[in-house]
Design a protein around this nucleic acid. Sequence first.
DNA 1: CGATCCTTTGAGCGAACTCAACTCGGGTGG
DNA 2: CCACCCGAGTTGAGTTCGCTCAAAGGATCG
Lengths: 247, 247
Amino acid sequence: MSESSLHRLIRRLDVDSAPLSPQEKEAILRLPITVKEVRADQDIVREGDIPSQCCLVIEGFQCRYKMLRDGERQIMSFHLPGDIPDLQSLFLERMDHNLGTITPNRVGFIAHDALEEVIRTQPGIGERLWRETLIDAAIFREWITNVGSRDAYTRIGHIICEFFVRLRSVGLTKGKTFNFPITQTEIADATSLSTVHVNRSVQQLRADGLISLERGVCTILDFARLQEAAMFEPGYLHLQEGEDVAA
Amino acid sequence: MSESSLHRLIRRLDVDSAPLSPQEKEAILRLPITVKEVRADQDIVREGDIPSQCCLVIEGFQCRYKMLRDGERQIMSFHLPGDIPDLQSLFLERMDHNLGTITPNRVGFIAHDALEEVIRTQPGIGERLWRETLIDAAIFREWITNVGSRDAYTRIGHIICEFFVRLRSVGLTKGKTFNFPITQTEIADATSLSTVHVNRSVQQLRADGLISLERGVCTILDFARLQEAAMFEPGYLHLQEGEDVAA
DNA sequence: CGATCCTTTGAGCGAACTCAACTCGGGTGG
DNA sequence: CCACCCGAGTTGAGTTCGCTCAAAGGATCG
């Protein structure tokens, strides 16, 4: 149970170019983790909170978001199994945004104390966790570009490409098909578009033969053309060689 | 010369709540740094580069940006003295964006090797640098919200508030006045607006008595009202207590 | 004192928005 | 087992914020 979840973390951190040492793997496996089931649309941590633990996504999807005073919601990232979406709370005391589930989740909580301890005794693990937060930041940068500089059609295509490639990198795709249980309202909150316009743009993506998307299941019908149309260049995800592009 | 520049880095990392130890300060001062003058509008590193050093801003302003295939430029952050804008290159080999100067700069280059060495021997310094990259990420998140969810007037006001508060935290403001040598074209690239619309919105901010801005010098005439109008809440900057808000 | 970059102004246009209503599918309780 | 309900998706029509195109004033600097 807790073993399999920490193995997911090991797979994530064990980069080909810099594999984890046996001691490092053991240290990760010794991390005390509390596994919990969380329903859909629940907050894990909220803006203003001062967490004392981090959350490893084991199953399901999460997102980070801010609420604006007019009630609008801005989603700033999606998170999938293997991610630790609130790792930054280790060094930034107060949450400046919310973290919530999109679907039902299985999550593992790891105390800050335990993480600090493992970082102290195994600096290599700290560096790898640091690297993960840097990739988060790289994705944020891409999202600035996405909401800032791309039109609705491109913007939505881009989100789908990213979701697909990230999901594939953790082995959660079947060919070009994957679970995409993100409602059009949530896509709207992530892309800063209205749900109406998201809907019309998604229909256009379907009409153009780029994707099929219904009832939470997405299939990419022509990745090359979608990637081109969505201006998607996966470099910013900093995946390992061989992991990126194509299939 | 190189002493004063590394002292700037020490001041940045020496948080009240977790002051640097004497050994840590010494270790920072021992860092080999190469100081260089760079003209305005020059790239420090480019997308695709694999840097072997990091850049400490000593004097002047920089920005990170991406170029899109239609020639549009998306600025994703501004950087000011004390920042290390490409710290992420320590763990993410390949640059996924550009870093360039906005004004003439004095910068200090520190080799990755030297940084890795100091992080290894003084883990506390590593944690503080990690924290800096997490604040970068927090600012990226806020910028997603800015370009995504705010109208032109608010968006520009927000950028100005952020610039002011960050500048003040490193002692580069005089009262409510500060250097703001960012052209309207650059504001446009940072806010994803057209220069024409930036111009009209800036004029509106002036007409509303919130700011004065001419020839690279900005004065905030009514911070409370500007902050309110710009939906600016400085929590995401994770400044130390006493440093934030008011004057 | 021309060259150039930055700012400003006018006018028409368009991508995305709002409001409103209708459809569809899945779950739930009487 | 059916009626209802509710969230998600879809469609139509009018509106608006910010865009583009075009051109004219400043400022700064060899």
